[in-house]
């Protein structure tokens, strides 16, 4: 089954480094050097302390499902989601390569890139199989 193909993000000068890194499989999150907090979505000025001293840092790509909603009438069906990154902030994304009926808030997910219509690498997430000890 082919999933929904995302539209192009239309990067700006403020965000181009994110999309360039994504093409190389690196997931960048903006972090503030002044207050040390990571934020989403990435911007020049820290949304907490307003410092312009923010830097791109490579994130782990791990997170948990904050919430999700299955678009049942869309063709193809897709899963809208918020994922809370291990670095702290929560981002809007899609859950892919998954059974929409087997998802749960709080479940572990990992980043996976899917191409947009124009070939951008879009950060999406898929469930991590549970490890049994």
């Amino acid at each position: 089954m082919t999933g929904r193909i995302p539209s192009d993000p239309q990067p700006t000068a403020e965000t181009q480094p994110f999309w360039d890194a994504a093409r190389e499989g690196r997931f960048l999150v903006k972090r503030c050097r002044a207050c040390t907090k990571a934020h989403w979505y990435p911007r020049t000025h820290c949304p907490f302390c307003a410092s312009a001293d923010t830097e791109w840092t490579e994130a782990s790509g791990g997170g948990t499902i904050y919430s999700y909603s299955v678009m049942r009438r869309a063709e193809p069906v897709y899963v809208m989601a918020y994922v809370t990154l291990d670095e702290g902030p929560t981002m809007m994304t899609n859950l892919v390569d998954c059974d929409p009926d087997a998802l749960a808030v709080g479940a572990r997910v990992r980043i996976v890139y899917k191409p947009s219509t124009g070939g951008f690498a879009m950060p999406m997430f898929s469930p991590v199989p549970e490890v049994r000890s």
């Binding site: 539209s7 192009d8 993000p9 239309q10 965000t15 909603s69 678009m71 809007m92 899609n94 879009m122």
Partner: peptide
């Protein structure tokens, strides 16, 4: 696209329906 949030939301198929859907889903989970 001039909206700073646009590129982080629109490509993923954000709609009124799924924003409220996610709100209801999280309320159910919590």
């Amino acid at each position: 696209p001039a909206q700073p949030d646009y590129q982080w939301e629109q490509p993923f198929g954000m709609q009124i329906l799924n924003m409220y859907g996610m709100t209801a889903m999280r309320h159910r989970a919590l």
